[in-house]
Design a protein around this nucleic acid. Structure first.
Lengths: 137, 137
DNA sequence: CATTAGTCTACAAAGTTGGTAGGCTTTTGA
DNA sequence: TCAAAAGCCTACCAACTTTGTAGACTAATG
């Protein structure tokens, strides 16, 4: 399951995707529209900025905005930025790999099953982009 | 990510799958072979028994064993038994559904994206069984 | 120079995870 | 019949993560 933080991040990105090209969007506006606690949202947006997805403008008329067109960022990228691994166990994670110290990955049945599951999930998440996160109304 | 508990459960099930038809297997044997803390493993196996996947025999010559042939239990079922939801967010979970109180599921872009992700993952996990968890040596 | 709006540091309650300790009960076989 | 074997059950707990909150600071605008 994705953490609340990751869900908030994805919702915020979806909102910013819908507003792409319209200039900076206030944290407070995102907070109200997507019902995300404002102080929590602050830290999330800041993290997304530090990860190079968003940029911001201070002062009056300021706010956050997507650096690139929404279709340039995949859901796989977005989830990894704030939510960590997509794989179900560390020893099959591509970006957050950790060697399994309790078993031999070459012969471990669980490992093989999880590799295949990971690939199936990635196939979807790498095809979908922030465009998909925009609301339908 | 799957919790350690779920990973242990899957490994234990894989071990029991390999020993299917050979009578009861000791907790201590599984603990040693799969490197799982024994007291933790006790609680996991007990839970799997209460969920109808395993049965046990007490006393000398006792132990745990699969009730059904390994191919009868899918990975989706196994994960749900001890690990909870497979879906990435509660409002798209089939077995652990919770209504999203912060948005309208009919128009929420995140919801739609996660439904598709869930279906892709399930398509794999419902096809694989405990047979897949057996080690290759 | 006042207002607006993002930035940064620090803290903390609550829940989850990953166990441990120790005794109880049931079954077997000598 | 009784002791050993092996699972059953209750209770506890340390560490970590999650999900926030509080409040001061900095930068930009007009």
């Amino acid at each position: 399951m994705l953490s609340k933080k990751t869900q908030y991040a994805l919702k915020a990105l979806g909102y910013l995707a819908a507003k792409y090209g319209e200039g900076p969007v206030l944290i407070s506006e995102i907070s109200v529209k997507k019902k995300i606690p404002i102080k929590f949202l602050e830290t999330i947006l800041l993290e997304l900025k530090q990860n190079g997805v968003l940029d911001s403008k201070k002062g009056k008329g300021g706010g956050y905005f997507l650096i690139n067109h929404p279709k340039k960022t995949t859901l796989a990228q977005a989830i990894r930025l704030v939510g960590g691994p997509i794989a179900l166990i560390p020893c099959v994670s591509i970006n957050f790999y950790e060697k399994c110290k309790d078993c031999d990955e070459a012969t471990c049945g669980l490992n093989k099953a999880m590799v295949q599951t990971r690939d199936a999930t990635l196939k979807i998440l790498e095809k979908k982009t922030l465009v998909e996160l925009m609301d339908w109304k």
